[in-house]
Amino acid sequence: MLDLKDLENRSVYILREAYAEFQRPAVLWSTGKDSTAVLWLCRKAFFGEIPFPVIHIDTGYKFKPMYSFRDRIANEWGLRLLIIRNEQANKEGVGPGNGKFECCTRLKTQALKECVEENGFDALILAIRRDEHGIRAKERYFSPRDEDFRWNYKDQPLEMWDQYQSLAGESTHIRVHPILHWRELDIWQYVRQENIPVNQMYFAKDGKRYRSLGCEPCTFPIESTSKTIDEIVEELEVSKTAERSGRAQDKEKAFTMQKLRALGYM
């Protein structure tokens, strides 16, 4: 499996560059397969112990099994888990019912913004991949955000070879994307090879499984009979549907994702 080795080597290199360049990094963990793989890569890069906080944005709308999976892994891996919520928005009753765009922005982006300000994080490690979405394919490995969290996608920094820019213009923090170059299929093959724990919701029950995990009201299962990782890998090798086809944010309207991300969404 030379190819997985290449992917891993590059990701570990990027994580170590981030650790060298930033004073206060943190990694985001949704408990999904991608960010769990990133935590695994962090354990590889830092020999078992992740030397920075792991942030979980809790919208209050996640699936139950995501919470139990989170607490189990956090304990097993000894994570410095930081659970964040936008309490104010929760109090106001913000939810997908009164607008998905606002819901994502307030419960996720806003919660994260406050957490970054409070803790003074200068880098956030995120598990986005190019092949998930056209907009994410436009990202850099090190991608600056200004104090309003905005992504200035029209003027992104030069990123030559393995020379990542840790300070660019008026940025207040940098988004670090160590698995930008991985495909969905690579993630599953890696999960299989490394025996990385994943949420059981990814496996088929009654002819359906979750291919991408988000908040319960806005995430839907796909038709699938894949009950094991081998079967998921097989399914993905021939699948022609989009990975995030069960995610509402991607579907609303064209460029919704671009607009969400321009405001600081992941």
């Binding site: 092949d131 056209g134 907009i135 394919a137 436009k138 996608y153 029209k154 495909r183 064209a254």
Partner: peptide, 21 residues
């Protein structure tokens, strides 16, 4: 298929690099 910024569609030109597999 690959010019995914709204501005790229409007202006009919590629603004930033994209990588696809």
């Amino acid at each position: 298929f690959i010019d995914s910024f709204e501005d790229e569609l409007k202006e009919e030109r590629t603004i930033d690099t994209t990588e696809v597999m």
